[in-house]
Design a protein around this nucleic acid. Structure first.
Lengths: 336, 336
DNA sequence: TTGTATGCGTTATCAG
DNA sequence: CTGATAACGCATACAA
């Protein structure tokens, strides 16, 4: 049905090898033959069969992305990924992966065994699982981790500086006169959770303020987590004058809880998030947050993986990008 | 390196065809041989090379999804897709597609020519382009459209009942005593835009209310569109007492604009959206909206395509799912 | 600069 | 029930 390399060769009056050379931009072809082949290709509307190429090259030209389902941030992230991959002739295979889940492990193992992917990119908390590192070491397929839990393992990663981000956000709140600042911790299987908390603590200590355990709540990086934690923390007496919700999604939950309780933001309470998702500026009066260059991070991780796949040595296999405080209307000077 | 079907055959003491039979659950294999082969497979940790299979079967087992970049709704949608496809041994290739864009067309053409996808699913407004229908007809690859612009073309689709949703939402507002209800139209290249507007109009007419052109704004289905339209409509005198923003994202923009202008919701103005995204219940005091069974729609479209790919006849190639009004705190009786 | 022959790992054909 | 052998479409040593 569809034209093959043989049809092109026949029409161009040359061998299939020559056609192959033209397709792959190899040297040692006369300009004239090249032109003849090219016009044959156009005439037959030929494109190389990707499956055949994959079989003979023993590569799938597919990058596997492991992520936990859901979350708003991920759709931008994914479309960025697609664009990057396209330029380098890689496809993406998105796989949801729950650490510790047996089904997830089996799916992943099949993915690798069937050689459906040439390499893997993980997003938190998928790398929590020792399983992945083990599988990777055993099968030898390249892996790049985004915001990995463990930076000490000698595997490539691209990460963000959560500590500094949380530190400067907290310092901003302190600068506004806040002394009772609540903090919502993220899930324990994210390194980001720990780092953001450390940044919060560091800022408090640098300003000679105590870390009040009753203002630190275990939470999640999502709406429900923020909502629940906010309802708890609001009961404290005296109540906090500011909430650092740990993430933007949690901040949205906290905002909801505050509005439900009839508290005004920022007059009665300041609220801040982390991630600077699109929603941060879409909620009135704007959510103070910490901007993370996710697009850059994702692109860097992808390019790093592609380099590894092509056998290039990556000069900087472990990178940490800075984060940036973004002040909006949700945080204000404490009323005296 | 990795085990092949030959290795398994050697270890099990049989031919490769027999191994193939076992892998594919074909009949005509003794239970005993089957067991021997299976244990050999386990011992060698064998999994069939997907590229070889794809080459010989002349199918990629990949479904292409065409969508416009961005948007919150799409991440849930995508993970749903992945799960569905996994069960049927299909992978997904997500491709951003801008109608009328030459680059997009070329990318898509390559996708099809290289046989990287066996079939296509489009999301609005990607099917606006006659190009896709043409390509599909010409190449013969199956296509299922989600919420297509043109339901008259004789191609399979899965859609939602936007008309009824908008009609009942508008009726709800009228029932609350609203007489001046603003409406924000979506982009012209979405069928949803037209249908929702028609539903709005129908409800007004059914209640003997006029369609006031000054309250109908051309907008987009996103935050900025809703924000801009809301700022315009608020200038009208008398101002509307309710806004039907056309979509949840636009509603979020409208809410922002209202809060910026110091208007309370729902006391000063009622606001409603459409789609019932996760955010609808995460914004205080809850956004009245119209719930669309996107998960079902996506799953149905995928299964329909898989049936087509397997040569089955689809009994219902064109389906419209009902939508459902969801009342939350953002709409209330008009103050008299 | 060009061509020939071989193999990648499956599935499919058809004869045993 | 089982197996030898031929595709599938491309890339790649190796020759010419």
């Amino acid at each position: 049905m569809a034209a093959t390399i043989k049809d092109v060769a026949r029409l161009a009056g040359c061998s299939i090898k020559t056609v192959s050379r033209v397709i792959n931009n190899e040297p040692y072809v006369t300009e004239e033959t090249r032109a003849r082949v090219n016009s044959a290709i156009r005439e037959l509307n030929f494109a190389p069969n990707i499956s055949a190429r994959r079989l003979v090259q023993q590569r799938s030209f597919v990058i596997g992305i492991l992520l936990l389902a859901g979350g708003y941030g991920q759709s931008e992230l994914l479309s960025r990924l697609m664009e990057t991959g396209y330029e380098y002739h890689y496809d993406f295979l998105v796989q949801t992966y729950f650490p510790t889940s047996t089904t997830s492990k089996e799916k992943l193992a099949r993915l690798v065994r069937e050689r459906r992917v040439d390499g893997l990119v993980t997003t938190p908390p998928c790398d929590m699982d020792d399983y992945i590192a083990g599988l990777v070491v055993q099968s030898g397929i390249p892996l790049v981790r985004i915001n990995p839990y463990d930076r000490l393992i000698d595997l490539p990663y691209v990460a963000e500086d959560d500590f500094q981000g949380a530190r400067s956000l907290t310092a901003h709140l302190i600068g506004l006169g806040h002394r009772r600042i609540a903090f919502f911790k993220g899930p324990r299987n994210h390194r980001m959770s720990a780092d953001r908390y450390l940044g919060y603590k560091a800022a408090l200590e640098e300003h000679g303020l105590p870390v009040r355990p009753e203002l630190v709540k275990n939470s999640e990086f999502n709406f429900d987590g923020g909502y629940t934690a906010a309802r708890l923390v609001i009961e404290e007496d005296p109540a906090p004058t500011a909430i650092f919700a740990g993430s933007d999604e949690a901040a949205l939950g906290a905002i909801f809880a505050m509005q439900e309780a009839g508290r005004r933001m920022p007059e009665d309470i300041s609220i801040a998030g982390f991630d600077d998702l699109a929603h941060a500026k879409e909620v009135w009066p704007g959510l103070t947050s910490v901007s993370v260059p996710y697009n850059v991070i994702v692109e860097r991780a992808t390019l790093m993986l592609i380099d590894l796949l092509n056998g290039k040595t990556v000069d900087q296999p472990q990178v940490v990008y800075p984060t940036r405080l973004v002040v909006r209307g949700s945080t204000a000077a404490v009323e005296t």
